[in-house]
Design a protein around this nucleic acid. Sequence first.
DNA 1: GTGGTCTAGACCACA
DNA 2: GTGGTCTAGACCACG
Lengths: 127, 127, 127, 127
Amino acid sequence: MEFKDNVPIYLQIEQRLIKQIVQGQLQAGDRLPSVRKLAVTETVNVNTVQRALRDLNMQGFIYTKRGEGNFVTDDQDLIADTKEQLIKQAVTDFLKEMQGLGLEHRSAQAALENYLRKEEQDGDSEH
Amino acid sequence: MEFKDNVPIYLQIEQRLIKQIVQGQLQAGDRLPSVRKLAVTETVNVNTVQRALRDLNMQGFIYTKRGEGNFVTDDQDLIADTKEQLIKQAVTDFLKEMQGLGLEHRSAQAALENYLRKEEQDGDSEH
Amino acid sequence: MEFKDNVPIYLQIEQRLIKQIVQGQLQAGDRLPSVRKLAVTETVNVNTVQRALRDLNMQGFIYTKRGEGNFVTDDQDLIADTKEQLIKQAVTDFLKEMQGLGLEHRSAQAALENYLRKEEQDGDSEH
Amino acid sequence: MEFKDNVPIYLQIEQRLIKQIVQGQLQAGDRLPSVRKLAVTETVNVNTVQRALRDLNMQGFIYTKRGEGNFVTDDQDLIADTKEQLIKQAVTDFLKEMQGLGLEHRSAQAALENYLRKEEQDGDSEH
DNA sequence: GTGGTCTAGACCACA
DNA sequence: GTGGTCTAGACCACG
């Protein structure tokens, strides 16, 4: 049983940026905030941000123009593939969590459906 | 933005035990492993285990018989309520995660359905 | 015309280690000197060495065992491919340099042959 | 182990000019571009160019006519000797590089021959 | 301004 | 011991 398995900050930053790209919040070609700005908003050292961006660079998610900044890749396939993979991960994580609570896959699905139905009923009273 | 997700160890132990109860792995009236045994299997200090058990006691999940050990509560309602709550938590976590990937609730549900269909197809070839 | 194009130290370290692997001075499975030892022998900061090793790791040339050290990959294909590529690079660099001196490829080759013939004559008198 | 290969700029300029002379791009008796023109094309300070030319003067590669400019030497022997020396340097550099990759001299030669044969095959399909 | 490199020194986790 | 992460601050190169 492993306790305290701290995800490194630079990885957290990477993951957050990847999500923003995949989600469309950061569009292809968009310029990222400067390394120093990110360091401030994340309340983290400049080097830590740079390490994250360096990784994203090597993974193809962003590209760097020296003296100008970092930009989101135009490789739509990469973005689509990543999104698919992240979704699959979220699904399996959910199923595993539910299994830990004693619910098999189809039961987990039923619980989700049940939740959504209730939510929509409540939602109706809001508009 | 929170880094450093240092969930205290005793809380992690509590959560794990609660899941085992809710899931049925630990049945009502079952005796828990001794504090010392738990300390070993969790590779953790005895005091840490004791703190976890004290909390579970206060929350009603277990009760202590002096000289005999700790036992799972017989309060089926509490167990059921907790299970329901944990399931709800898992569902909302899942939906939130999928939303972070740009999928609204019904899309998230569709992705789950999609995953399960594929899984069952592949699973058929295995039996 | 670009002057002063300083190759970063960490890249120099990477290249030197790759050559040692390709050349066989570092064999598959060999343990590298520790990060701190390398930092001393290269008279360079620990972080700089770590950056080099991290890159080599991602490129597959070495793998890390936490708490034990860094080891040369067993992937003989990767080593062979890299060697081939480095040789090709050396050849094209040589041909380009000779071209800058007014020698076309076959003339460059002739100059090399000429040099080796003389060298062997001189070498004969040494044994 | 030397890092920081800061070859002085004026030396780089000298070497480039020498190559141009040896290669025949600058013929015996040709007038060099003016100091100011060179300073521009090399994106460098005028003084730096002047230092390079002074050196070349002392080495006999060029001579200065006051009020007219700098001219390439007519000393064909000097040019020929220099060329020979630069070629030898290139050859030994190549051999040393290949040795660093584990190839002895004759193996290096074989790799060169191998490269040229392939190149000529590919080249045939291009014309 | 931008990013890139490097250092010195700290603290953590694994074994 | 090992490697991994992070910081604070310096200096460089590009534009």
